[in-house]
Each structure stands twice: as C-alpha cells, then as structure tokens.
Design a protein around this nucleic acid. Structure first.
Length: 483
RNA sequence: GCUCCCGUAGUCUAGUGGCCAAGGAUAGAAGCCUCUCGAGCUUCUGACACGGGUUCAAAUCCCGUCGGGAGCACCA
C-alpha cells in the first residue's frame, strides 16, 4: 500500500520506444529554419533529446531547409536562432546536417525511383492536379513510358521547365480511399534563391521524399514526429518498398500540442517583427525559446512540462499556467524578494517617529541568506492599485509600520499587525517591467534593485517573478515571468 | 465530403481484463503557517463521453453513436 503510493509519486518515466536498443538509437530533429524555435516546437525537440539520452543514442540535427514556399520562406539567420534555442533548452545533438547539402543524394534516389516506373514527371498545373485527385482521375503523364519520364526529369534539371510547369509524382493509387494519398508530389521546381546554396538547384524535393532518402541513409532508428505527419510515414514506407530498402526506422507519434489563448506561428511573427509590431525574436508575445529565456523560464521547467505529456496521441490544449507552475518550483528558492510599486503614488506620513531604515529578509524561507536594508522615512511611494484599494484604511507598510493610508497618511504604530500589507519604496529606482502581453509596467523599486545583475531572477513581492534584463544608472529593466 | 487518429476530474496524465469503491500533477475551495496575493503543510471538491456486446470479471477487448483533432499544398 505504502509502496504503491511512493511509486506513483515518483519521477515520470518515459515509455519505452519500440525495438530500442541501448546505445543503438539514432534520432533526428528536423527544424524548419523560418525563425527561432518556439514553445509549440518543444514537444518534438524535448522528446527527441530525452529519448536520445535515455538510450545513450545519437541525436542528429537536420535542418529541413528544402526550399519551402512563398508563404514559408527560409530565413538565413534562423539557422543560428534555432541552434541558440536548442542550446538554451539543453538539447544535445552530435551532428548538424543540412538538407540543402544533400540534394544530389535526393536526385540519385529520384532517378532510381523513376527508372522503376513507380514515379513520373507530371506537367499538370496545381489546379488540375487537385481536381484530378478529387475525381480519382489519372492524367496522361501517369502512363507515359519510363524513357519519356527520364527525359522529362533531365529537362527539369536542365531548366527547361519553369516553376510550376512540372513535378515528380509517386504512383500510389489515384483511387486510394484517402484523398490525401493519391499520387503525391515528390519534387517541384522553385526558382527562389536558397540562403545557403543560392541558385545551385531549381528542382527541390518535398519533405516526404527527402526523408525517405535521409532516414534510410543516416540510419535513423526512430522517427518521433507529431501525428500531423502520419501520412509521411506511409509515403516513406511506400518509397522504401519500391526501392527495396530493408532497414527502416520505427515511427512514433505524439498528439498535437496547443496552448490556450495562443496561436503560434513562426512565419507570422517574422512578419510582425518586420512590421515593428513586435520588438524582436525575443518579444514575449512570440513565445520563442529566446523570449522564455528572457523572462526567466528555466529550461528544466520547459522539459518537465513537456515530458509530463508523455507520448500520448491525444491532442492537448494546455494553459501556460502549467508551465509557470513548473518554473515556480524551480526558481522560488533562488529568487530573492524585493519591493516594486507600479504607478507610484506619493504618500507622506505624519507623526512618524524618526527612523532611518528597516530590515527585511532577502528570502523569507531562508533567513540565513541575510537581510536587505531599506531606507525608511515619512516620504514614500505606494502602488496606485494599493492606494486606491486601501485609501482611508489602516494598512501595514510591510516590514515597516502601520498607517492609515492617504496622500497624507497618519502613523498608527510600528509593530507587526494582522492587517493588509502593502509594499512601499523610498529613494526608489526606476523599474520597467516588460509584461508577457507586450505592455510595460513602470514604477519604482527599492534601492537595492539597482545593484541586481542581469539574469538575476527575483520576486517582486505581490507582483510576481521577473528576470533582470538590463541595469543602468537611470533604470532597471526586467521581464515578468509569472506570478 | 473522404481518410486517419483520439476521447479518464476545469486542464494534463497514470492505468494494456481482476491489486481501480480509479493514482499523480495543475487549477479551485477551506484551514494552518508566513510581516508577500509566493512557498510550505493539512483537508476537501472533482473523471473512466454514451449505448450495446464479449467475459466469472472491462476504464482496459469488440461494435455502434456522439464529440474533438489532423490530413486531403508544387509548405514543413
């Protein structure tokens, strides 16, 4: 009885991966470099990293930088932004590869495939292609000879087709009950420049084909991907069947992860940053890993948060509060306490006995950490919200004294009392607190706040946890993490 | 519409036929503690979508219904 409870409360174990052999697991991470990684990508990279470590295997970072689309362009700086995010998140990979370096391999495989007659070059436009798919109708190109197809392929490579004029399609079955699986496109022509390889290629593989090649060539043992990519399994499998590839990875999926009240999109944030609606890639509204770092979210919190979902195929929607709860567990003990009053209101206390300063603990749970000395006196500031709420009532200025609150406040007594306690500041330093919604809270912090260092995570009492982002003579800037 | 996936408390999850009168986390409530609306401690609220089977026995297997999601791009 007792034993069972202990096990249930113990640390969460990852479910085993099918046919995983310790030391032989090879996993891959396939970010698309259109911007920095954000919290919505976390499930993929945390799980891959966690399993690579669990099985003492290898994790490959393979940039999925095939040419993309007009709507989702590649971004040159995204490669470093992705790596920066992964580094922060504690993801350890042994090798970095680029799809764009592997195009010749993809061509080689394409030619093998075309020569089997199981794929063909199609000249139908996108619209025709879609309509035929709906109607389960094969087009004339499907039945052309292998020789014709090879000739057309060469013509594609030679630049004799313009963008949109020819694609390579896999012969699955135009009557497949799944409309999504009817002769899918494997290669298409894109005349855009690539940030790494420029205009070296104009025929680019689609994700499914490139992975059919690379998962096989790189010896990937397990593919962990979201279940929005299940059809890709079928595509890869079909291609391996045709080419007689025997050694194949296991496919493992996890459900779609969404955040309540959040819509994450790398491409959209890119546009909004460019338009000046967001301050940069670490704007808290992007939920990029960079922004989480800036707010003082610990990578371990993100990891725990993601691992708590396991490998379930459920589609889930979680509130950010769950991540905050995880983070709070980690930072609470480290975060020293300080006073910050937002939108300060000046208050002068009458009848206050002479007093120079008071002492307050840096952290109430760890008295050994020492005290902060706060200059005290009759002239001070309190937060507007507190002022309005408690005006005319007796409150305790925490660690200081009791007063009846007003612009001209009346001193009552010094000793602690069981009445509402509010924070207060004399000789305050300017503090700007950047909030997750992009707004900013301005106010005053107690003098010691000016001696904090960048990256310190503190708790502004009754406000919340924050990371110090910038300290100068004029002001301290901090990013709000959570309550 | 078609194909596939999923359905345990507000949320996330454990559970793979008997040990489940369903465990944990988070959120919520109450109390204690605390010179913070944080943390800690104690207690409480709260779920197997529904209907049929199979079985001695079902949250767990099967069928149906309902609900949610994904895919149906020359994006990833």
């Amino acid at each position: 009885m007792l034993e069972r409870a202990t096990i249930a409360a113990g640390p969460k174990e990852l479910p085993p991966l099918p046919d995983a052999v310790d030391g032989k697991v090879v996993l891959r991470l396939a970010p698309y470099p259109s911007g920095p990684l954000h919290i919505g990508n976390a499930r993929a990279f945390v799980l891959n990293d966690a399993y690579a470590k669990k099985y003492h295997g290898r994790l490959l970072l393979v940039f999925d930088d095939t040419i993309g689309s007009e709507e989702k362009p590649l971004l040159p700086e995204a490669f470093d932004q992705v790596r920066e995010g992964l580094e922060w998140a504690g993801v350890e990979y042994q090798e970095v590869l680029y799809k764009s370096d592997r195009i010749p391999l993809h061509y080689e495989w394409a030619e093998k495939l075309l020569s089997t007659g199981e794929a063909y070059v199609c000249e139908c436009d996108a619209d025709t292609l879609r309509k035929n798919r709906e109607a389960m109708k094969a087009c004339v190109h499907r039945i052309q000879s292998v020789d014709e197809t090879i000739a057309m392929w060469k013509a594609m490579l030679a630049g004799e087709y313009a963008e949109g004029e020819a694609v390579v399609r896999l012969k699955t079955d135009m009557a497949d009950p799944n409309p999504a699986f009817r002769d899918r496109v494997l290669f298409r022509i894109a005349e855009r420049d690539h940030p790494r390889v420029g205009d070296r290629y104009r025929v680019w593989p689609m994700l499914e084909f490139s992975w059919a090649v690379d998962d096989a060539l790189l010896g990937v043992s397990h593919v962990l991907r979201g279940k929005d990519l299940v059809m890709e399994d079928q595509m890869e499998t079909r291609i391996w069947d045709i080419l007689g590839i025997r050694r194949r990875p296991e496919f493992v999926h996890f459900g779609i992860l969404r955040f309540k009240d959040l819509e994450l999109s790398k491409s959209r944030y890119r546009k909004e940053i460019a338009a000046g609606h967001l301050t940069g890639i670490d704007d808290p509204r992007t939920w990029s890993l960079q922004s989480l770092q800036r707010r003082g979210i610990r990578p371990a919190a993100l990891r725990e948060f993601v691992l708590s979902f396991g490998l379930s195929l459920n589609d889930i929607e979680v509130p950010a509060e769950t991540l905050y709860a995880e983070n709070r567990k980690l930072i609470d003990k480290d975060a020293n306490r300080y006073f910050f009053v937002a939108d300060p209101i000046a208050v002068e206390i009458t009848g206050l006995p002479p007093i120079e300063h008071v002492k307050a603990p840096l952290h109430p749970d760890f008295p050994g950490r020492g005290h902060r000395e706060i200059p005290a006196g009759p002239k001070l500031h309190v937060a507007q919200e507190d002022f309005e709420k408690f005006r005319g009532k007796e409150v305790r200025l925490k660690d200081f004294c009791n007063i009846v609150l007003d612009h001209r406040a009346r001193f009552v007594s010094m000793g602690n009392k069981d009445i509402p306690k509010i924070q207060w500041v004399t000789h305050g330093v300017n503090v700007h607190l950047a909030l997750p919604d992009g707004s900013e809270s301005r106010g005053l912090g107690e003098p010691l706040v000016a001696s904090l260092k960048v990256n310190d995570v503190v708790q502004f009492e009754r406000v919340g946890f924050a990371r110090i982002d910038h300290v100068s003579k004029a002001e301290v800037r901090a990013f709000f993490a959570h309550r």
